[in-house]
Design a protein around this nucleic acid. Structure first.
Lengths: 139, 139
DNA sequence: GAAAGTAGTTACTTTAAAGTGAGCTGCTAC
DNA sequence: GTAGCAGCTCACTTTAAAGTAACTACTTTC
Protein backbone atom coordinates (compact mmCIF):
# COMPACT_ATOMS: atom_id res chain seq x y z
CA UNK A 1 0.00 0.00 0.00
CA UNK A 2 1.35 3.40 -0.91
CA UNK A 3 -1.84 5.17 0.11
CA UNK A 4 -2.51 5.38 3.83
CA UNK A 5 -5.18 7.01 5.90
CA UNK A 6 -4.47 10.20 7.83
CA UNK A 7 -4.59 8.24 11.07
CA UNK A 8 -1.83 5.90 9.85
CA UNK A 9 0.39 8.76 8.76
CA UNK A 10 -0.17 10.49 12.09
CA UNK A 11 0.76 7.41 14.10
CA UNK A 12 3.89 7.09 12.02
CA UNK A 13 4.92 10.68 12.55
CA UNK A 14 4.31 10.28 16.27
CA UNK A 15 6.52 7.20 16.52
CA UNK A 16 9.30 9.00 14.67
CA UNK A 17 8.97 12.04 16.89
CA UNK A 18 9.11 9.96 20.05
CA UNK A 19 12.24 8.24 18.77
CA UNK A 20 13.76 11.64 18.08
CA UNK A 21 12.90 12.92 21.56
CA UNK A 22 14.47 9.88 23.18
CA UNK A 23 17.90 10.79 21.77
CA UNK A 24 17.54 14.59 21.80
CA UNK A 25 20.27 15.89 24.11
CA UNK A 26 18.36 19.00 25.18
CA UNK A 27 15.37 16.91 26.13
CA UNK A 28 17.51 14.51 28.11
CA UNK A 29 19.22 17.30 30.03
CA UNK A 30 15.92 19.01 30.76
CA UNK A 31 14.57 15.72 32.07
CA UNK A 32 17.60 15.32 34.30
CA UNK A 33 17.58 18.85 35.67
CA UNK A 34 13.86 18.85 36.33
CA UNK A 35 14.03 16.18 39.02
CA UNK A 36 12.69 17.60 42.25
CA UNK A 37 16.04 17.61 44.09
CA UNK A 38 18.52 17.92 41.24
CA UNK A 39 18.51 21.71 40.96
CA UNK A 40 18.58 21.97 44.73
CA UNK A 41 21.66 19.76 45.06
CA UNK A 42 23.36 21.52 42.17
CA UNK A 43 22.68 24.84 43.81
CA UNK A 44 23.87 23.77 47.24
CA UNK A 45 27.13 22.36 45.87
CA UNK A 46 27.56 25.18 43.37
CA UNK A 47 26.76 28.18 45.51
CA UNK A 48 27.36 26.92 49.02
CA UNK A 49 24.81 25.94 51.67
CA UNK A 50 23.39 29.47 51.83
CA UNK A 51 23.03 29.48 48.02
CA UNK A 52 24.91 32.77 47.87
CA UNK A 53 28.59 31.86 48.02
CA UNK A 54 31.11 29.75 46.14
CA UNK A 55 31.22 26.09 45.23
CA UNK A 56 32.60 23.79 47.88
CA UNK A 57 32.43 20.08 48.72
CA UNK A 58 29.72 19.00 51.13
CA UNK A 59 29.09 15.89 53.13
CA UNK A 60 26.05 13.71 52.79
CA UNK A 61 24.64 14.75 56.14
CA UNK A 62 25.35 18.40 55.47
CA UNK A 63 23.35 18.23 52.26
CA UNK A 64 20.56 16.44 54.11
CA UNK A 65 20.48 19.25 56.67
CA UNK A 66 20.47 22.05 54.09
CA UNK A 67 17.84 20.35 51.91
CA UNK A 68 15.61 19.88 54.92
CA UNK A 69 12.81 18.08 53.11
CA UNK A 70 14.84 15.40 51.36
CA UNK A 71 14.66 11.74 52.38
CA UNK A 72 17.87 9.69 52.49
CA UNK A 73 16.53 7.67 49.57
CA UNK A 74 15.96 10.66 47.30
CA UNK A 75 19.24 12.28 48.29
CA UNK A 76 21.38 9.26 47.47
CA UNK A 77 19.36 8.57 44.31
CA UNK A 78 19.89 12.14 43.12
CA UNK A 79 23.60 12.14 44.00
CA UNK A 80 24.03 8.78 42.29
CA UNK A 81 22.49 10.01 39.04
CA UNK A 82 24.58 13.19 39.09
CA UNK A 83 27.70 11.11 39.72
CA UNK A 84 26.79 8.83 36.83
CA UNK A 85 26.60 11.83 34.51
CA UNK A 86 29.99 13.10 35.67
CA UNK A 87 28.49 16.20 37.25
CA UNK A 88 29.36 15.34 40.83
CA UNK A 89 32.31 13.45 42.32
CA UNK A 90 32.03 11.30 45.43
CA UNK A 91 34.93 10.91 47.85
CA UNK A 92 34.84 8.51 50.78
CA UNK A 93 37.39 8.84 53.57
CA UNK A 94 37.93 5.86 55.88
CA UNK A 95 37.54 7.65 59.19
CA UNK A 96 35.39 6.35 62.07
CA UNK A 97 32.62 6.81 61.20
CA UNK A 98 33.18 7.07 57.44
CA UNK A 99 33.14 10.51 55.86
CA UNK A 100 31.73 10.95 52.38
CA UNK A 101 31.94 14.24 50.54
CA UNK A 102 30.37 15.34 47.28
CA UNK A 103 31.70 18.02 45.01
CA UNK A 104 30.75 19.47 41.64
CA UNK A 105 33.08 18.54 38.79
CA UNK A 106 34.07 21.13 36.19
CA UNK A 107 31.22 19.81 34.05
CA UNK A 108 28.77 20.07 36.95
CA UNK A 109 29.90 23.58 37.71
CA UNK A 110 29.32 24.67 34.12
CA UNK A 111 25.81 23.19 34.22
CA UNK A 112 25.22 24.95 37.51
CA UNK A 113 26.08 28.29 35.90
CA UNK A 114 23.62 27.66 33.09
CA UNK A 115 20.83 26.62 35.44
CA UNK A 116 21.64 29.64 37.57
CA UNK A 117 20.76 31.89 34.63
CA UNK A 118 17.30 30.35 34.63
CA UNK A 119 17.01 31.13 38.32
CA UNK A 120 18.01 34.73 37.76
CA UNK A 121 15.34 34.96 35.06
CA UNK A 122 12.80 33.57 37.52
CA UNK A 123 13.70 36.07 40.19
CA UNK A 124 13.71 38.98 37.77
CA UNK A 125 10.32 38.14 36.29
CA UNK A 126 8.43 36.57 39.18
CA UNK A 127 6.28 39.68 39.74
CA UNK A 128 5.59 40.00 36.05
CA UNK A 129 4.44 36.38 35.80
CA UNK A 130 2.33 36.65 38.97
CA UNK A 131 0.61 39.76 37.61
CA UNK A 132 -0.26 37.97 34.36
CA UNK A 133 -1.64 35.01 36.31
CA UNK A 134 -3.87 37.26 38.42
CA UNK A 135 -5.18 39.01 35.33
CA UNK A 136 -5.84 35.68 33.60
CA UNK A 137 -7.59 34.14 36.62
CA UNK A 138 -9.78 37.20 37.07
CA UNK A 139 -11.50 36.67 33.71
CA UNK B 1 7.78 22.05 75.91
CA UNK B 2 10.92 23.80 74.91
CA UNK B 3 12.88 20.59 74.49
CA UNK B 4 12.01 18.45 71.52
CA UNK B 5 13.33 15.27 70.05
CA UNK B 6 15.47 15.30 66.95
CA UNK B 7 12.59 13.78 65.00
CA UNK B 8 10.33 16.67 65.93
CA UNK B 9 12.89 19.28 64.98
CA UNK B 10 13.47 17.49 61.69
CA UNK B 11 9.76 17.38 60.86
CA UNK B 12 9.57 21.08 61.63
CA UNK B 13 12.50 21.95 59.40
CA UNK B 14 10.96 19.88 56.63
CA UNK B 15 7.62 21.69 56.85
CA UNK B 16 9.38 25.04 56.73
CA UNK B 17 11.47 23.97 53.77
CA UNK B 18 8.44 22.76 51.86
CA UNK B 19 6.70 26.07 52.52
CA UNK B 20 9.79 27.87 51.23
CA UNK B 21 9.91 25.74 48.07
CA UNK B 22 6.26 26.43 47.36
CA UNK B 23 6.94 30.16 46.98
CA UNK B 24 10.48 29.97 45.59
CA UNK B 25 10.37 31.61 42.15
CA UNK B 26 13.21 29.54 40.68
CA UNK B 27 11.53 26.35 41.76
CA UNK B 28 8.20 27.44 40.29
CA UNK B 29 9.78 28.33 36.96
CA UNK B 30 11.71 25.08 36.83
CA UNK B 31 8.49 23.21 37.49
CA UNK B 32 6.78 25.08 34.69
CA UNK B 33 9.54 24.64 32.14
CA UNK B 34 10.01 20.97 32.88
CA UNK B 35 6.58 19.98 31.62
CA UNK B 36 7.00 17.49 28.79
CA UNK B 37 5.74 19.82 26.08
CA UNK B 38 6.55 23.26 27.47
CA UNK B 39 10.12 23.49 26.20
CA UNK B 40 9.01 22.05 22.88
CA UNK B 41 6.28 24.67 22.39
CA UNK B 42 8.61 27.45 23.53
CA UNK B 43 11.20 26.26 21.07
CA UNK B 44 8.77 25.96 18.16
CA UNK B 45 7.36 29.45 18.73
CA UNK B 46 10.74 30.96 19.58
CA UNK B 47 12.90 29.46 16.84
CA UNK B 48 10.39 28.58 14.15
CA UNK B 49 9.03 25.14 13.20
CA UNK B 50 12.48 23.90 12.17
CA UNK B 51 13.89 25.09 15.51
CA UNK B 52 16.62 27.00 13.67
CA UNK B 53 15.03 30.27 12.60
CA UNK B 54 13.29 33.26 14.14
CA UNK B 55 10.24 33.61 16.32
CA UNK B 56 6.93 33.72 14.52
CA UNK B 57 3.28 33.11 15.36
CA UNK B 58 1.95 29.62 14.70
CA UNK B 59 -1.48 28.13 14.47
CA UNK B 60 -2.79 25.41 16.71
CA UNK B 61 -2.76 22.82 13.96
CA UNK B 62 0.67 23.89 12.81
CA UNK B 63 2.03 23.30 16.31
CA UNK B 64 0.26 19.95 16.44
CA UNK B 65 1.94 18.95 13.17
CA UNK B 66 5.42 20.08 14.24
CA UNK B 67 5.13 18.47 17.67
CA UNK B 68 4.03 15.21 16.13
CA UNK B 69 3.53 13.29 19.34
CA UNK B 70 1.35 15.75 21.18
CA UNK B 71 -2.33 15.05 21.87
CA UNK B 72 -4.86 17.88 21.47
CA UNK B 73 -5.42 17.77 25.20
CA UNK B 74 -1.76 18.24 26.14
CA UNK B 75 -1.24 20.90 23.49
CA UNK B 76 -4.09 23.08 24.65
CA UNK B 77 -3.25 22.47 28.29
CA UNK B 78 0.33 23.56 27.68
CA UNK B 79 -0.68 26.59 25.64
CA UNK B 80 -3.25 27.57 28.26
CA UNK B 81 -0.70 27.50 31.07
CA UNK B 82 1.81 29.50 29.03
CA UNK B 83 -0.90 32.02 28.20
CA UNK B 84 -1.81 32.27 31.89
CA UNK B 85 1.80 33.14 32.73
CA UNK B 86 1.91 35.82 30.05
CA UNK B 87 4.49 33.91 28.01
CA UNK B 88 2.28 33.25 25.00
CA UNK B 89 -0.51 35.29 23.45
CA UNK B 90 -3.54 33.72 21.77
CA UNK B 91 -5.27 35.43 18.86
CA UNK B 92 -8.48 34.11 17.33
CA UNK B 93 -9.59 35.38 13.93
CA UNK B 94 -13.21 34.89 12.91
CA UNK B 95 -12.63 33.31 9.53
CA UNK B 96 -14.40 30.17 8.32
CA UNK B 97 -13.22 27.97 9.87
CA UNK B 98 -11.79 29.94 12.79
CA UNK B 99 -8.08 30.63 12.81
CA UNK B 100 -6.23 30.69 16.12
CA UNK B 101 -2.62 31.73 16.31
CA UNK B 102 -0.16 31.61 19.18
CA UNK B 103 2.83 33.85 19.57
CA UNK B 104 5.53 34.37 22.18
CA UNK B 105 5.23 37.61 24.14
CA UNK B 106 8.34 39.64 24.97
CA UNK B 107 8.41 37.83 28.31
CA UNK B 108 8.08 34.46 26.62
CA UNK B 109 10.84 35.30 24.18
CA UNK B 110 13.20 36.22 27.00
CA UNK B 111 12.47 32.92 28.73
CA UNK B 112 13.03 31.12 25.45
CA UNK B 113 16.49 32.67 25.17
CA UNK B 114 17.36 31.50 28.68
CA UNK B 115 16.11 27.98 28.09
CA UNK B 116 17.97 28.00 24.79
CA UNK B 117 21.24 28.44 26.69
CA UNK B 118 20.48 25.21 28.53
CA UNK B 119 19.95 23.50 25.19
CA UNK B 120 23.26 24.76 23.88
CA UNK B 121 24.92 23.38 27.01
CA UNK B 122 23.25 20.04 26.40
CA UNK B 123 24.43 19.88 22.80
CA UNK B 124 27.97 20.95 23.70
CA UNK B 125 28.34 18.40 26.48
CA UNK B 126 26.25 15.45 25.32
CA UNK B 127 29.29 13.36 24.37
CA UNK B 128 31.02 14.21 27.62
CA UNK B 129 27.99 13.14 29.67
CA UNK B 130 27.51 9.97 27.62
CA UNK B 131 31.18 9.04 28.14
CA UNK B 132 30.84 9.44 31.91
CA UNK B 133 27.70 7.31 31.92
CA UNK B 134 29.43 4.52 30.02
CA UNK B 135 32.38 4.58 32.40
CA UNK B 136 30.06 4.55 35.42
CA UNK B 137 27.91 1.70 34.09
CA UNK B 138 30.98 -0.37 33.27
CA UNK B 139 31.98 -0.64 36.93
C1' DG C 1 20.44 2.47 77.97
C1' DA C 2 17.92 5.53 75.00
C1' DA C 3 18.98 8.69 71.55
C1' DA C 4 21.88 10.79 68.06
C1' DG C 5 25.18 10.99 64.31
C1' DT C 6 27.68 8.50 60.28
C1' DA C 7 25.90 6.94 55.12
C1' DG C 8 23.17 4.67 53.22
C1' DT C 9 19.50 0.39 51.28
C1' DT C 10 15.08 -2.06 50.45
C1' DA C 11 10.20 -2.69 49.97
C1' DC C 12 5.82 -0.67 49.73
C1' DT C 13 2.50 3.16 48.80
C1' DT C 14 0.89 7.48 47.13
C1' DT C 15 0.08 11.08 43.72
C1' DA C 16 0.45 14.10 39.99
C1' DA C 17 1.48 14.27 35.16
C1' DA C 18 0.75 12.35 30.99
C1' DG C 19 -1.66 9.46 27.72
C1' DT C 20 -6.08 7.43 25.51
C1' DG C 21 -10.20 7.76 23.25
C1' DA C 22 -14.33 9.69 22.41
C1' DG C 23 -17.08 13.60 21.19
C1' DC C 24 -18.31 18.49 19.63
C1' DT C 25 -19.45 22.23 15.73
C1' DG C 26 -19.47 23.69 11.18
C1' DC C 27 -17.60 23.50 6.60
C1' DT C 28 -15.30 21.38 2.27
C1' DA C 29 -13.34 18.15 -0.99
C1' DC C 30 -13.52 13.39 -3.22
C1' DG D 1 -21.41 9.79 2.39
C1' DT D 2 -16.94 9.09 4.25
C1' DA D 3 -13.05 11.53 5.43
C1' DG D 4 -10.72 15.57 6.30
C1' DC D 5 -9.56 20.16 8.61
C1' DA D 6 -10.22 23.41 12.23
C1' DG D 7 -9.82 23.91 17.54
C1' DC D 8 -10.84 22.30 21.03
C1' DT D 9 -13.21 19.65 25.85
C1' DC D 10 -14.29 15.77 29.00
C1' DA D 11 -13.83 11.41 31.42
C1' DC D 12 -11.01 7.66 32.31
C1' DT D 13 -6.64 5.04 32.78
C1' DT D 14 -1.80 4.39 33.03
C1' DT D 15 2.88 5.13 34.75
C1' DA D 16 6.84 7.07 36.54
C1' DA D 17 8.50 9.96 40.16
C1' DA D 18 8.38 10.86 44.73
C1' DG D 19 7.35 9.90 49.48
C1' DT D 20 7.18 6.70 53.81
C1' DA D 21 8.90 3.61 56.92
C1' DA D 22 11.88 0.43 58.51
C1' DC D 23 16.45 -1.52 58.95
C1' DT D 24 21.82 -1.90 58.54
C1' DA D 25 26.09 -1.35 61.82
C1' DC D 26 29.21 0.97 64.67
C1' DT D 27 30.41 5.07 68.06
C1' DT D 28 29.60 8.56 71.21
C1' DT D 29 27.13 11.52 74.25
C1' DC D 30 23.05 12.58 77.99
Amino acid sequence: MTTRTAAERKADAKAQYNAFLAVCPSHQILGRVSGKWVALVLSALGSGPDCAGDARPMRYSELARVLAGVSPKMLSQTLRSLERDGLVSRTATATVPVTVSYELTALGLSLHHTVHQLKLWAERHRDDVAAHQDRYDAT
